[in-house]
């Protein structure tokens, strides 16, 4: 388990292995309760707030259970790289994890691809023609990683963009589901994600009923995919409602 040769945690790793084995057996059964007491189709409570970083044009903070993310948006600013005139703007996304975001220090998974996935999720929603020749920078910082990181990052980034006043066709919200045998569990935590059989993540624009990004891993039957997608889309639209009320609240603050 050691990522760094000079550290090791002897008793912790053997404990963890035991717990994992226990859980795997648990997940294979048909009926089990989730560790945080949620039902299979219940998402974590979402806490969203705009205006977290004062130096940025727009920013947002999202806390979904144990997953906490800050996103700041800078721009539109002049594109630093000398580029030919382009009639559309540029979007630049960057996702980084803090060293203390995971319980084992320094271990952060796959976040290099998260930057490009965030880009793909957002570029369909932003009206790039409104800021030609300039760049919008989106920086996401995962402060605490508790599972379902990428959906939370995408949701928080969309909120930060709306806070920054960038024109968008619609708010983007994202939800993921895990499958365990025959059960479909929405909004998994990191422990559940570690033992999942498959994962489906959907990013969509709820008011326009358009899906901007879909990723699927594992073995799924068509019926299960249908069920999972319906579940996700429903959760996405509810999440968008929460985002909307958060923005309305921020907009009615006195000036």
């Amino acid at each position: 388990m050691a990522t760094n040769p000079s550290t090791y945690s002897p008793s912790q790793s053997s404990e963890r292995k035991q717990l994992q084995q226990q859980r795997r057996r648990l997940f294979q059964e048909t009926d089990w309760t989730r560790f945080d007491g949620r039902g299979f189709q219940q998402c974590r409570p979402a806490f969203l707030k705009t205006g977290a970083a004062s130096a940025a044009s727009g920013s947002a903070f999202a806390a979904f259970g144990a997953t906490k993310v800050i996103v700041s948006v800078f721009g539109p600013r002049e594109s630093k790289k000398a580029m030919l005139y382009s009639s559309t703007g540029r979007l630049n996304c960057n996702v980084s994890y803090t060293a203390f975001s995971t319980s084992i220090r320094g271990q952060s998974s796959d976040h290099k691809e998260y930057s490009s996935m965030l880009h793909k999720a957002l570029e369909g929603a932003i009206i790039l023609e409104t800021f030609p020749k300039t760049t919008v920078d989106v920086f996401a910082l995962v402060v605490e990683s508790g599972g379902g990181d990428l959906p939370v990052i995408i949701t928080c980034a969309s909120l930060a963009l709306a806070d920054a006043g960038i024109m968008m066709y619609d708010l983007v919200s994202s939800v993921s589901v895990s499958c365990f045998g025959r059960n479909i569990v929405i909004d998994p935590t990191s422990e559940e994600e570690a033992c999942q059989d498959g994962n489906l993540m959907i990013t969509c624009m709820p008011a326009r009923n358009e899906v901007t990004q879909v990723t699927l891993t594992g073995e799924w039957s068509t019926a299960k995919i249908n069920e999972a997608m319906e579940l996700c889309l429903d959760a996405c639209s509810k999440l968008a409602e929460i985002m909307r009320s958060c923005l309305k609240e921020a907009a009615s603050a006195p000036s």
Partner: peptide, 20 residues
């Protein structure tokens, strides 16, 4: 104080959010 200011500026009418 902020609450009183909020009441004085009657804005509740027409605030929209993206995609409203």
């Amino acid at each position: 104080a902020l609450q009183q200011l909020e009441e004085m500026t009657s804005l509740a009418s027409a605030i929209t959010v993206v995609a409203d």
